[in-house]
Design a protein around this nucleic acid. Structure first.
Length: 478
RNA sequence: GGCGACGUAGCCAAGUGGUAAGGCAAGGGUCUGCAAAAUCCUCAUUCGUCGGUUCGAUUCCGACCGUCGCCUCCA
């Protein structure tokens, strides 16, 4: 499918804030590090937006012809996991494991393709310690009396180039935690936290303690992708301080450029407002499913807005997404009830070619899925017209399904059968449906429309939708 | 206060220095016994406001108004 050289995409790189032509460090290969979850609760639909974006990015790069290695970290040690584990009276691993499982289950539910690696912070303490030692050696970090180690921001001349924040004296002193008074400079951030009573700890050259937050992503991304790699993504809230600090510590440790391209997904908001615990609108996937919103519709909804744009989750918007998806489903349904006859349709061939070209161009344009979807709908229209006029010829059904399945390697939403049963358990068997339809056909041929409509009503009661065509009556569960 | 993003039809949403993709919804026509589905047509002389640059701006620049995000552990 992609035997030719990859199509080079353009990406809006947060580092430099401009649209850049993407060139991988190693021809044809792309290493992508995606910031994963902190496992102290179920992810909400905002978290999931970012993960779906990352999924589409990886799928798109593969579609464009690159061999992708995706790594997603799992933060299983930080203030929150420690606090919650303690509150639950559980060990850290014992506490986080169910959330790791449910996180992966949510990804599966949304058809997010698995990353190549899901490194856990607690399993990479040695790598982090090695990096911290290197930073101390090079004069970029220092040990304080209580056994904590801090990164020395003053030693990093270009600190702040990702976020654009120039932290100066005016902003200092605002948020100095009481236990961090030993820092040389309030801007410095912690690499290693000295042990505190009741917290999980690991041995280190500086005594017992645990890693700071940022160091895990530096250590783990480099372990799996190399000291320099292609793409690093996450939510916009990670730009500062997390990603800024990752760059500082990574480049200070190795003297080499860290990630080349930084992509950040904007936030999802709900009814125009930021999600927050107090508003009670931090919906989880299972809550949505309970509300009757299928994961497939949610995935389509995520796809419908550019990742750099805030996504406003509203009931109306989700309905609208469902309507759009219905249009594609309906076309597939009609396709399944269409016969091929005669020569292949030239219009169809042209439309398929156009879809491929526009789809590829849209993906390459900073993942412009709106353009990709517009191309898809353009294709749907042509297919519908060709079906309407009975112009599908030899091999055309295969052609349509083939191109749809190609673009769906990126979208991942177009094939209803690939998703879990979305319809209610059926209250009527196929042969019963067929029997009633045949009775109705009989009634119609006798022009007994009252009886025909009664039978249709019976079927509707079972959730069966009929569509009469000149050739036959087709039906579906809907 | 610092940094940044955004404001396009009823709703969602692309986009370009040369006169506005696509989807949902809505209205009308075709098809149908009636539906459903499909299809055809209609639906922004206009892209927050005011200026500037330009032959020409929604697209570039400036100001203003409005919405929002980040500013040390939130995707």
């Amino acid at each position: 499918m992609n035997v030719e050289t990859p199509t080079a995409p353009k990406f809006y790189n947060t580092l430099g804030r401009s649209l850049e032509s993407f060139t991988p460090l190693s021809a044809g290969k792309v290493g992508i590090y995606t910031c994963g979850p902190t496992v102290y609760g179920d992810p909400h639909i905002g978290n999931l937006r970012a993960f779906v974006f990352e999924d589409v990015l990886v799928r798109a790069m593969r579609y464009l012809g690159y061999a992708v290695t995706q790594v997603m970290n799992i933060t299983d040690v930080d203030d929150k996991t420690i606090r919650e584990a303690k509150a639950a009276g559980l060990g850290l691993d014992e506490y986080t494991q169910p959330y790791i499982d449910s996180f992966l289950a949510d990804l599966d539910t949304l058809h997010v393709a698995r990353a190549d690696e899901y490194p856990r912070a607690t399993r990479h303490i040695a790598e982090m310690i090695a990096m911290i030692e290197q930073l101390i050696e090079r004069g970029h970090a220092y040990l304080v009396d209580d056994g904590s180690v801090y990164f020395r921001i003053a030693s990093d001349e270009d600190y702040g180039r990702l976020s654009g924040f120039q932290l100066d004296e005016a902003q200092q002193g605002e948020r100095v935690a009481s236990d961090e008074y030993e820092k040389e400079d309030v801007r410095d951030f912690v690499l290693w936290k000295a042990a505190k009573p009741g917290e999980p700890t690991w041995d280190s050259p500086w005594g017992a303690g645990r890693p700071g937050w940022h160091i895990e992503c530096s250590a783990m991304s480099m372990k799996y992708l190399g000291e320099s790699f292609d793409i690093h993504c996450g939510g916009v809230d990670n730009i500062f301080p997390h990603h800024e600090n990752e760059i500082a510590q990574s480049e200070s440790a190795t003297g080499k450029p860290f990630a080349h391209t930084w992509l950040h997904a904007e936030h999802l908001i709900v009814d125009g407002e930021k999600m927050s615990k107090s508003l009670g609108n931090q919906y989880t996937l299972s809550e949505l499913i309970e509300q009757g919103i299928s994961p497939r519709i949610l995935r389509y909804f995520y796809l419908s807005v550019n990742y750099r744009q805030k996504l406003n989750y509203t009931a109306y918007a989700v309905e609208s997404a469902a309507g759009a998806l219905r249009r594609v489903d309906q076309m597939r349904f009609r396709l399944d009830h269409t016969q091929e006859e005669g020569a292949p349709s030239p219009k169809l061939a042209a439309a398929a070619k156009q879809l491929r070209a526009e789809f590829r161009a849209g993906l390459a344009d900073d993942l412009n899925l709106s353009e990709c979807l517009a191309a898809l709908f353009g294709f749907v229209k042509v297919v519908n017209v060709e079906i309407e006029h009975l112009r599908l010829g030899e091999g055309d059904l295969w052609k349509v399904r083939q191109v749809l399945s190609e673009v769906d390697t990126v979208f991942g939403v177009l094939d209803p059968e690939a998703w879990e049963q979305e319809t209610e358990p059926s209250s009527i068997a196929d042969d019963e449906v067929e029997e009633l339809i045949s009775q109705r056909r009989e009634a119609r041929s006798n022009r007994d429309f009252a009886e025909a409509d009664r039978l249709r009503g019976v079927l509707e009661g079972h959730g069966i939708v009929l569509e009469d065509t000149a050739q036959a009556t087709r039906w579906k569960r809907g």
